[in-house]
Design a protein around this nucleic acid. Structure first.
Lengths: 162, 162
DNA sequence: GGGGCCTTACTCGGATATCATATGTCCGAGTCATGGGGG
DNA sequence: CCCCCATGACTCGGACATATGATATCCGAGTAAGGCCCC
């Protein structure tokens, strides 16, 4: 049995958000540009950007020179926000209340299923950790060990795509 | 985009382990019995029990009066063990190192991808929480509000299926 | 009556179908920049 | 020379295929219990 895999789009979306955080005020990046920057399939990246937009993480601008911008400051967008936007809001573990089935059901107590509660606690721990990291932190970490030549190259690319 | 769903077999397996924890010494429960107890598809439950056996969470006994037993004391089997047995060991988030792609790759620094690190930290938090809950805790919680009539019925079923 | 062997039925284990969801793609609706014409 | 408008191209957004993995099932290999025969 292979491991539960998180939607790869989460990684793409997180990197895209980090990129958007570096945009000058009033500028935008198209889905095509965001895809090209990491050599990803354009159409599929576009789909994930749609999800981010629908979740309110980014805002979309139509027409020429349009594209996407972060909807909030980079320190107000957490990795959890990105995950929820791409993977959806519901809990990972879904209790089907199978304890109520079968010859010896145990649902007399109104209490929630202990197993479900335990997994949901774990999910909350995950969520807390993911909430504590913002796109701004990612950007700061990337900017830490930046090479001047690469920075120039990046600025050139940015100017050519905004 | 719908939410990432954990394999439903994890819930089944956890309940099954709780049931196995109540077995008298030297007895076993067949996959069919475990399935029937919660009204689950027999063959599919069997598949999940195989996964638990392969992961070393339970041991299997073939032949008449055979079935499954916990491989360790109930307080030495955590919900994390069950999850790993069913969902597989690998991490949820898989970093594809897309930062190395595209026109402006940023892999000069030997450091790991910050995004991947953040998600892996969150997974560790999840894991720590899930590790802290054992099958024994589940059983204790279930036994807390037990009805004498139901207990009798359960013992009857157990005697008929071991 | 006791012990050993054979039969037999019961169990797991993996190979095999089916189906939902993630992955990947495409075209139409909407919108802003641009360029031309008029004042 | 400046403003307004029509045009056009560029953007997103959702509808449409495909591939991968989860869900569900079945049959064969192995084994321990139980009965039967022999001593």
């Amino acid at each position: 049995m292979s491991a539960m895999r998180m939607n790869e789009g989460v990684e793409w979306a997180a990197h895209a958000c980090a990129l958007l955080a570096l945009l000058p005020e009033g500028k935008a990046l198209s889905a095509a540009a965001l895809a090209e920057f990491h050599e990803l399939p354009r159409a599929y990246m576009a789909k994930h950007m749609q999800a981010l937009a629908k979740a309110g993480v980014v805002v979309s601008i139509k027409g020429p020179r349009g594209g996407y911008r972060l909807a909030r400051p980079a320190d107000a967008v957490s990795l959890w926000d990105v995950r929820v936007a791409i993977e959806g809001p519901g809990p990972d573990f879904r209790c089907q209340e199978i304890r109520r089935n079968g010859p010896c059901p145990s649902h007399d107590t109104g209490k929630p299923c202990t197993i479900a509660k335990a997994f949901w606690d774990a999910e909350r721990a995950y969520q807390a950790q993911a909430r504590s990291v913002a796109i701004a932190d990612i950007v700061a970490s990337l900017a830490a060990g930046v090479n001047p030549a690469r920075a120039e190259r990046f600025n050139t690319w940015l100017a050519a795509n905004t």
